[in-house]
Design a protein around this nucleic acid. Structure first.
Length: 285
DNA sequence: ATACCGACCTGTCAGC
DNA sequence: TGCTGACAGGTCGGTA
């Protein structure tokens, strides 16, 4: 489901709502698919830890966890952080296609496909729900390295260098998380439209000037999407249960056979690397 | 290195 | 009403 703007929106919401809280206990369902780390390791890593910060890396939600200097969540939560660094860990959540993270009261009905519930010292619960189970949960004691570079931070030169000389279609390269992390099917299509490049163009065949344009287009489309809370296609909601609004700004994604907003030509849909790809045959070369 | 395909899962919707 | 197939924001591993 979620690409960079949706994950960013969710991570910000979680940062606001659960940072500073402490995980008291963890329940994990019996479906092993979403677990990249053993359930016992996830529970042991989370329990008793303070959530210092929630942020995003590519399409991953990263919870920075801190060991508590003393027992008991509620009291410890108010303690100032000691200067000496305590052992830290990270809880990594990848939402896959249909994953959701919600913060709710314990009395709230447990949704179907709930795979993890973390009880917090504040009395609320943090729940991971994922019908298709393409999501992944893992814990790391060292640093977590998602690979690739952040599209919103990468310099123009670095961006151009990522794609120059590659024989793969530019869209496949945009979706490759080892190069650029966070761009998915919607934003790849939207960025390519704005840059005037067809999805199947070989990266190596794109001029430096066009790659610069693509760099700007990727950043622009991601920023605009974050500002609107992401794209809600069928079931995406943020940590507060709110839908995003960027789907109303899509210029090609999901608009097969509809007129191009620039030239009126019918938007085309082709399958590339197993994914639907949308483009305007006139505006994109 | 690259590219295509199926696999992993469940849910929804269109068409018959 | 119900069946079937296509499709869905993502990634991985196998095979040419």
């Amino acid at each position: 489901m979620p690409e960079l703007p949706e994950v960013e929106t969710i991570a910000r919401g979680l940062e606001t709502r659960v940072a500073g809280d402490t995980v008291e206990s963890v329940w994990i369902g019996s479906r092993p698919q979403p677990l990249k780390s053993p359930a016992s390791a996830i529970a042991a890593t989370l329990e008793g830890k303070r959530i210092a910060r929630v942020h995003r890396a590519g399409k991953h939600i990263v919870f920075d966890l801190e060991a508590q200097p003393n027992q008991g969540g509620r009291l410890a939560r108010r303690q100032p952080r000691p200067a000496a660094s305590l052992p830290t860990a990270q809880w990594i959540v990848h939402l896959g296609m249909t994953g959701r993270m919600v913060v709710c009261e314990p009395a709230a009905e447990i949704a179907k496909h709930t795979h993890l519930i973390a009880k917090l010292a504040s009395g609320r619960e943090l729940r991971f729900i994922d019908p298709r189970m393409f999501g992944k949960l893992s814990v790391h004691s060292g640093g977590f390295d998602p690979g690739g570079v952040e599209p919103l931070e990468v310099s123009e030169e670095r961006f151009v260098a990522l794609f120059r000389g590659r024989k793969t279609p530019i869209k496949s390269a945009l979706l490759n998380q080892k190069l650029l992390r966070g761009v998915g099917n919607i934003y790849a299509d939207e960025a390519l439209f704005r840059a005037g490049i067809r999805p199947r163009r070989r990266a190596a065949a794109i001029t430096r000037e066009q790659l610069r344009k693509l760099h700007r287009a990727v950043r622009e489309v991601l920023r605009e999407a974050i500002a609107l809370g992401g794209s809600s296609i069928s079931d995406y909601v943020d940590a507060d249960g709110e839908e995003g609004f960027f789907q109303l700004q899509h210029r090609v994604y999901g608009r097969e056979a509809e007129p191009c907003l620039v030239c009126g030509t019918a938007i085309r849909r082709v399958v590339l690397a197993g994914r639907s790809s949308h483009y305007c045959p006139k505006c994109q070369k």
